[in-house]
Design a protein around this nucleic acid. Structure first.
Lengths: 212, 212
DNA sequence: GTCTATATGTTGATAGAC
DNA sequence: GTCTATCAACATATAGAC
């Protein structure tokens, strides 16, 4: 047995749980199917994670981080606004093409279990009492106000900016089954999603009234 | 007992089920709590609806219709494009302010139970073999192509148009718990959502490159 | 149509051997 | 750390009286 046998098993369980929760939701997924998919016994799930609730919280935290951390990194950087937009759109399309079910799972989780969001902001870094999110919004607000003052775009708050951008990127994946039906099949859906990589930054920047 | 006692009970059950499914999801909700909320016995649920699955499908169909029918009516009408945008934004903000949990519930349902979408397009009307949705998209495509030909906006397909518009309207409600945390409370969320009534049409039409 | 009572099957969770 | 065996609690669904 390798020294990482335990940590390896733990990861296998988390991976299996992630798949199960994404496909069936927290209350829809069964501990038995998670154990089967992880190739371990059901009792081991309770050994590593006290109960289903703890397991669900662990999975959610990991998936939520996967979804927001790269975007926050980009939005909080010192890149130009139009670069940020293009990068975020690309990031989302890459991540969500790989895990199409991620948005629907996360949205369901924050709706049916909003308590999972507690502590999301409490990770203070570098002795800065403001949350990571608050600092990102500050950086963005600065850029947006400067650009607006120069007349390069219409005034918009950082909150609106982010909500609009994320809406346009994420919603089509969350509503994929519906779009598939309305557009006439998986091929049409795939084409529509991929076409957004180029069209969306253009649409979004124009919406801001941004002059090139 | 009134002549509509049965139909009344049926409606009460559907209403109670809708609330329960919206709050807890299809698999999270319990038949017992639905029966309690409807003020009837659990066995009656199985008398009116064969099983939980049938009840869930009934609720979903009703809620889905509430969400898409008014929008399709507007988008398929002969109104001008910018009028359609403003009306759809207003419709969504009105409906979703009244039922904030509707988007998260519907998105969860179409993700975890995509089979519920089967038959969504089969309601053919007026002997027209095309679905309602297909006709709406045709009308829209005609308007968009005409406007593009006149140089009043950048070329865009009806599918993209609708996906972008619905994304911007619906996603903020679906992600409301997250936005509440990020912006700092219910008040900030409410303010952000209501501010979209005016800002969103402006943003969207500018995104289209629409000249006023 | 509406109820009480009960059957039937799952599910999350634990005890205890190895 | 990992397994087998088992429990206690529930949830859905049905039977049958009124």
């Amino acid at each position: 047995m390798t020294p990482e046998a335990d940590t390896d098993t733990r990861e296998r369980i988390l991976d299996a749980a992630r798949t199960a929760f994404r496909e069936s939701g927290t209350s829809g997924a069964r501990m038995q199917e998670i154990a089967d998919a992880a190739g371990v016994n059901k009792a081991l799930l309770h050994y590593y994670f006290r109960n289903k609730e703890t397991l669900a919280a662990g999975v959610f935290t990991r998936e939520m981080g996967r979804l927001v951390r790269p975007v926050f990194d980009t939005l909080g950087s010192e890149a130009a606004l139009d670069d940020k937009v293009r990068r975020v759109v690309g990031l989302y399309l890459d991540t969500l093409s790989e895990f199409p079910g991620l948005p629907a799972y996360v949205l369901a989780e924050i709706h049916f279990h909003p308590e999972r969001l507690e502590g999301l902001l409490t990770q203070v870094a570098d002795g800065d009492p403001r949350s990571r999110a608050a600092r990102v919004f500050e950086v963005l607000d600065g850029q947006l106000q400067a650009a607006a003052a120069e007349g390069r775009l219409r005034p918009i708050t950082a909150h609106e900016f982010v909500v609009n951008l994320v809406s346009l990127c994420v919603f089509p994946f969350a509503a994929a089954p519906l779009i598939r039906v309305l557009t006439g099949g998986q091929d049409a859906l795939d084409h529509l999603l991929e076409a957004r990589r180029a069209a969306l930054p253009e649409f979004f920047l124009a919406g801001l009234g941004m002059t090139p």
